[in-house]
Each structure stands twice: as C-alpha cells, then as structure tokens.
Amino acid sequence: MADRKHIPQDTKLRLFADAAGHCQRPDCLQPLFPAEMGGDKHIAEMAHVIPHGEKGPRHEERPAGEFEADSFENLLLLCPSCHTTIDKNSPSYNRSTLLMWKSNHLAALANKQGVYAYEERSQVRSAITAAMAENKAIHTRLAPCEGTSFEYDPESESANTWLHRMRNVILPNHFRVQRIITANQHHMDEAEHEAFAQYQEHVRGLVERHVCGVAGRAIRYPVQIDGIFA
C-alpha cells in the first residue's frame, strides 16, 4: 500500500474556496455549513477521485507514471452522503464523471441559484446590490475593531457571533456575488476586471481565515468593488 500523507494545508484551502461552501455533486449541492448545525461547523469531506495504492474505488483508473493522490486535481469536496455514495458504487462514478463535477461545479451552483448573464449593466448591479449591502451591514455591526476586547478574546460571544455570520451569511453572499460577476464579465471595463481580481483574492483569504483557520492571509476588501457596474 502506498504511504498515506497528510493533505497539504494549501490544497485544503483551495478545495474549500473552489467548492464555494457547497457539495460538489451536481444533483446535491447542499451547503457544507448547515444552518441546523448553527452555520459555524462544516460537514465537508475531502474525497479522492483515485485512491492511494492499488485498491479502493476507481483504483483501476490510476494514470500511468507519477501520480499524487493528495493533489488538488485528484480531490473534491463532498457532503458525507455523497462521499459514501461515490465510493460504495464506484462503477457508476468513474474518474471522468467526478472530474466533470468539479470542473462544472460553479456553473451548476450558479444555475441552481438563478445566476444569469444579463443584457444591461444596471441589471447586474441590481442583482448584486442586496448581498453586498447585507454584508456591509453585518460588517459594520459585528466586525472586530483593532484594540478592542473582541480582538483578544476569540472565545467571546461577540467573536462567536461574528464567525457564525461570516460562515453562514457573509461568505455565501460573497460566493453568490462572485458567480454573478463572473457570468457578466463581458460588461466590465479594465478597472472593474482589476477590482474583481482583488475581490476574489480577498474572498479566498476570508475562506482561509474563517473556514480553515489560517490567520493573516486575507487582503483588504477592495473598495472599488462597491462601485462595480454602477
């Protein structure tokens, strides 16, 4: 049997960001931070497309030559039920099917959530305004301020409330805004493309910090994004 190694932290971060908080099986897509669990605990499982070693689901599809089972390309994020399903019935879920799920995940999620390519910039603006306004209101009311007791007591009620809102409201809103903007990039000018790139990196940093527990990697929110499509 091949040696089992820990999945690298950077790979875990990419997986959570790539999944946008939802199971990557297209006929599931359930939130991986369920509201019934308070929205601050995830049920995500990292599923191997091709397993370690010469046994396990889809082992016969192992590519020739060097192969890293714990690479980002060989993993997807699923809910526990879907993870069990693909491994217990592997002939129905081959490598190409699982890789297609992963490749098409954001498009499938956008379709489920009613994300469209609009004809007018004003329509795009209207589609993202509510989510952006909700995030700003939560941030203004609950975000920690430098030098406050909140900053030094991560177990406080205020800190727990902030983390809950971040995982259950702010990040899902960010993911939705990103999908809408991505579907409507044909309306953007050069400055908006640059602002969007910075916004995407900001959201990746939030996922790393508030989902994966990696501190200090988020860049500041690019204020230019507030005026996108205006």
Score class of each variant (00 low, 15 high):
A2E: 15
F175T: 02
P63C: 03
E68S: 04
R204S: 08
M166A: 03
G38S: 12
K12R: 14
S81M: 11
H52D: 02
F196P: 01
A64F: 04
A131Y: 09
D87F: 07
H174S: 02
V124A: 00
G213S: 07
F229C: 08
H187Q: 13
T140S: 13
A47H: 04
L29D: 01
N104T: 10
D153Y: 11
K112H: 09
P63R: 00
D18M: 05
E68M: 01
G53H: 09
L206E: 14
A69R: 05
A218I: 01
C145F: 11
C145S: 14
T97H: 08
D226I: 03
A2G: 00
N135E: 06
A64I: 01
E60S: 09
G56I: 00
W101H: 05
I170G: 02
G39V: 07
Y93F: 15
A35W: 01
M46H: 03
S71Q: 10
M166D: 01
S92L: 13
K136C: 02
W101G: 02
L32P: 09
S158A: 12
P63V: 00
Y118G: 07
E134D: 12
G205Y: 05
E54M: 06
A108Y: 14
A137K: 15
G216R: 09
E60Q: 15
D10T: 08
D226F: 02
W162C: 09
G39N: 04
P8I: 04
P51N: 11
K55D: 12
E36Q: 11
A35R: 09
H22C: 08
T182M: 09
T140F: 07
E36H: 14
L171A: 04
S71H: 05
F196L: 00
N173H: 15
D40A: 13
P8K: 14
P26C: 03
M100F: 10
E60Y: 07
S103K: 15
E194S: 13
S81W: 12
T140W: 04
L142S: 08
A17H: 12
T161I: 14
Y221S: 03
E45D: 13
G65C: 02
R125F: 09
F150G: 05
L78T: 07
E194Q: 14
F175L: 02
V124Q: 03
G65Q: 02
E201A: 13
E45G: 07
L13G: 03
G53W: 07
L15P: 00
L142F: 14
T182R: 14
A35F: 03
M100R: 15
C28G: 10
D18K: 05
M1G: 11
